[in-house]
């Protein structure tokens, strides 16, 4: 220690040009943020695919369960509601009505509830290369679609082959743009849910209650008329509920051969675009402030 002088030296001063530098965990402007999300697309699909496949790795039938589970679920609904209870609730083709309601709402609700905690559960993915946080709920959505597409195929299969048999016409092609809008809707709500739960984890518990209320306001198992007739206060909640319109359009084009109302499309488009923009902006603004470590 002989090299140490008796008294500390004077504090040196460094003048540093930080032009072009950024704070870690932030990603520049929103345009750059979107580019980085796009650049991570292969990783997103890889992570989602790996997660779906590994979920069935220990099963003897492996990924076949992706088809079998919705098929058995569909058969149970068909037997219980079509034969045992013979419930129609004044609705034409109630089995088809119910399958569309349950399968399509389940896709949306599971995407949102499972994405809610995605920032914490997926944090290790971001730890190595400071990728955008929005990637985590989006990966979760891709995962839900990969595992959920078979349930849509089963839904269509039952509608086509199980009595009362429905003719699938050209109008049913509208189901594909509807799926695209549903995907945007799910992604937008998932990003907002991910932000909110990352901030206050307790809200995850309230989210499941909210999703349950949303189910009843969407007409999943019965017509929303029963709700709006019960009290006029429910009217706006049903009328502006995007999932109610998603299910209505799906039933119109797959079951009833009816041209869906333009207003229903517009409401879904408004919600989908609004929620995507809101979700992306919230997560972009929040970059660098989420808890991404084990401590």
């Amino acid at each position: 220690m002989s090299e140490l002088s008796a008294e500390p030296r004077e504090t040196p001063v460094a003048f540093i040009d930080v032009t072009g530098m950024r704070r870690p965990g932030t990603h520049g402007g929103i345009a750059e943020y979107l580019v980085r999300l796009w650049d991570a697309r292969t990783l997103a699909f890889h992570e989602a695919r790996t997660s779906v496949l590994s979920g069935h790795q220990r099963n003897r039938l492996g990924s076949l369960w992706l088809i079998l589970t919705p098929l058995f679920n569909g058969m149970v609904y068909y037997v219980i509601f079509g034969f045992v209870f013979q419930i129609s609730k004044g609705i034409d083709n109630y089995i088809g009505f119910l399958l569309i309601g349950i399968f399509m709402f389940q896709m949306t609700s599971s995407a949102i509830t499972s994405s809610a905690d995605s920032i914490f559960t997926g944090r290790k993915l971001l730890a190595s290369n400071s990728l955008p946080v929005a990637l985590l709920p989006l990966i979760n959505n891709v995962k839900i679609w990969l595992s959920g597409i078979p349930s849509y195929l089963v839904m269509m299969l039952i509608i086509i082959i199980a009595p009362p048999v429905e003719d699938i016409g050209w109008l049913s092609l509208l189901f594909f743009p509807l799926m695209a809008l549903q995907a945007l809707l799910m992604a937008g709500f998932s990003m907002v849910a991910a932000h909110v739960v990352a901030r206050v984890h307790d809200l995850k518990n309230l989210l499941s209650v909210g999703v349950r209320a949303w189910l009843y306001a969407s007409g999943v198992m019965f017509s929303v008329d029963r709700l709006t007739n019960a009290h006029p206060i429910f009217g706006p909640f049903v009328d502006w509920n995007p999932m109610h319109h998603v299910l209505t359009i799906a039933r119109d084009v797959l079951l009833y051969g009816t041209v869906p109302e333009l207003r229903s499309w517009l409401i879904i488009v408004l919600w989908a675009i609004g929620m995507i923009i809101a979700g992306l902006l919230i997560l972009w603004k929040g970059e660098g402030s989420y808890e991404l470590t084990d401590g």
Binding site: T11, P12, F15
Partner: peptide, 9 residues
């Protein structure tokens, strides 16, 4: 002695 950094942009 520490280091005093003055950033410029």
């Amino acid at each position: 002695p520490g280091l005093k950094i003055i950033t410029q942009s």
